[in-house]
């Protein structure tokens, strides 16, 4: 499963870069995130209590940053262990570029799940990713504000019955925006969440 996207963020590049590296912002945006702490310069440790439907479990994740090119981007990779549920891992190359007073964020991310969750929950892997993207978005919108999407990608969000009049593409845009917020470290946590189903 691969995600990519491009976003225009109404903030200067340095500020976006800092947000990408701010565990406090990230923890606030990740539902169920119990701890998120820097363990070294390029390493974060996280504990996430995650629930999707009947599934509920605790995941431990480790995140590593590499190819750091401040404030232009980095590669982030990591994995989460969910005990008997299996594991999730992933990585993303995130790049930032200034466009006037705003910042364009690009990412190419891949996510993998394994063990029991891949074996019995194949049908839900992609959907879970989308759902989690949506959850991040909602939370981030509160925390940071509403950025603007310039282009869509393969990631789309839930077409919820609660807003039936909105065509799926609008939801897709909303879903995509999450990724800007999620940025780096959070992606891995999302992946860890995926691994629950």
């Amino acid at each position: 499963m691969e995600f990519k996207g491009e976003y225009r963020i109404a903030a200067p590049q340095q500020k976006v870069w800092e947000a990408l590296n701010d565990p406090v912002i990230l923890q606030a945006c990740i539902p169920g995130c119990e701890t998120l702490e820097k363990t070294a310069d390029n390493e974060l440790k996280a504990q996430v209590r995650m629930r999707i439907g009947p599934v509920s479990a605790k995941f431990g994740g480790k995140v590593t940053l590499s190819d750091i090119d401040a404030p232009n981007g980095y590669r982030i990779s990591g994995e989460g262990q969910g005990g008997p549920a299996g594991f999730a891992k992933g990585g993303a190359v995130v790049t930032l570029r200034t466009d006037g007073a705003e910042t364009i964020l690009n990412y190419v991310a891949d996510a993998q799940v394994g063990g029991k969750i891949a074996q019995v929950g194949a049908r839900l892997i992609d959907g879970t990713a989308k759902k989690l993207a949506d959850e991040f978005f909602g939370k981030f919108a509160e925390v940071v504000g509403t950025p603007e999407v310039v282009e869509q990608s393969s990631v789309a969000a839930a077409t919820s019955a609660s807003a039936p009049s909105v065509p799926p593409t609008d939801f897709a845009k909303r879903g995509l925006q999450h990724w800007m917020v999620i940025g780096a470290g959070a992606l891995i946590l999302i992946v860890a969440w995926l691994s629950m189903r």
Binding site: Q112, Q119, V120, A122, R123
Partner: peptide, 17 residues
């Protein structure tokens, strides 16, 4: 039997799939 080519995970690992 469906394997994920990238990871080698068995995707058809139950009667669900």
């Amino acid at each position: 039997a469906a394997y994920d080519n990238a990871t080698g995970q068995l995707l058809s690992g139950s009667y669900m799939d």
